[in-house]
Design a protein around this nucleic acid. Structure first.
Length: 270
DNA sequence: CTCTTAACCTGGACGC
DNA sequence: TGCGTCCAGGTTAAGA
């Protein structure tokens, strides 16, 4: 479910309840998610104060003096703030109980998410080959253009490659390419510098706007307080196959690019 | 290296 | 109602 706006919405939702709190105890209801949950989560985290909640790409980091818990929501994961009166539901895989009497509770039917540990002063291997943050200073059209030279893969796949730029998933890749007027199947290396400048600006605009709207709720994404995201109402192409383009009225096309369903306007995108 | 493909999982929607 | 099929917001690992 979550791309960058949904993860950032989650970060902002949990931060006020988690920052400065001490982890009282950890409840693991299974020993693995996508990967085994390391022992350090049980042995090192309890007793530690969470100094900050950071987002890097689609990961969340709970920083403590002893190290950092590294969380990923995968495809279907979500975090909620609960107290002891809230019953455990199906697929509630772990709780991080805090000294406030509340807990951070992770639910993930498909279990593509993960809970890992990053020792102090280290960068977890999963974070080592990530590209720049799309809302940061290092990301712009020149970066995309320079990184794309010689790449023959479809520009949509290129844009979703987390080593090129992080945070852009299947929904926002389609939306950004529509906004920039670029056909998603075009070879990444065949897009001009000027058009990458436009694309980078649209990626920023759309992600910023989606964060403002609390993310996109297609099925089950909710913020930690249970609120859905409202960006779905602003989607121009994603999930709109056969419906008229909002700009020109041409029916929106849908097809697999790589392994992912993709949406575009055959008239507006070249 | 670059690029493609399969794999990891469950559940909801849909067709018969 | 039940059953089979397909699809889903992510990412890695293996193969070509």
């Amino acid at each position: 479910m979550p791309e960058l706006p949904e993860v950032e919405t989650t970060r902002r939702g949990i931060a006020p309840f988690v920052t400065g709190r001490v982890v009282a105890r950890v409840v693991l209801r299974r020993k693995d998610l996508r990967w085994p949950i390391p022992r350090a989560i049980s042995t090192r985290l309890p007793g530690q104060r969470i100094d900050a909640v950071e987002r890097r790409a689609k990961y969340l980091l709970l920083h403590t003096a002893a190290g950092s818990a590294l969380l990923h929501l995968g495809m279907s994961g979500s975090l909620r703030i609960v107290d002891a009166t809230v019953p455990v539901r199906k697929h509630d895989h772990y709780d991080l109980w805090l000294d406030s009497g509340q807990a951070l509770r992770f639910n993930d039917p498909r279990r593509f998410g993960c809970l890992l540990w990053q020792p102090p002063g280290e960068v977890h291997p999963l974070l080592q080959h990530l590209g720049p943050e799309p809302l940061g200073d290092a990301f712009d059209g020149h970066w995309l253009w320079a990184a794309s030279r010689g790449h023959h893969t479809a520009v949509k796949n290129f844009l979703m490659d987390q080593s090129i730029v992080v945070g852009v998933g299947n929904i926002y890749a389609s939306e950004a390419l529509f906004a920039a007027g670029i056909h998603p199947k075009r070879a990444a290396g065949a897009v001009s510098r000027a058009r990458y400048t436009r694309l980078a600006a649209e990626v920023r605009r759309i992600l910023t706007r989606a964060i403002l709207r609390g993310g996109t709720t297609l099925r089950d994404f909710t913020a930690p307080d249970g609120a859905p995201g409202y960006f779905e109402q602003e989607l121009q192409v994603y999930g709109r196959a056969g419906q008229p383009c909002t700009a020109c009225g041409t029916p929106i096309r849908a097809a697999f690019i790589g392994q992912r369903m993709s949406y575009w306007c055959p008239h507006c995108q070249r």
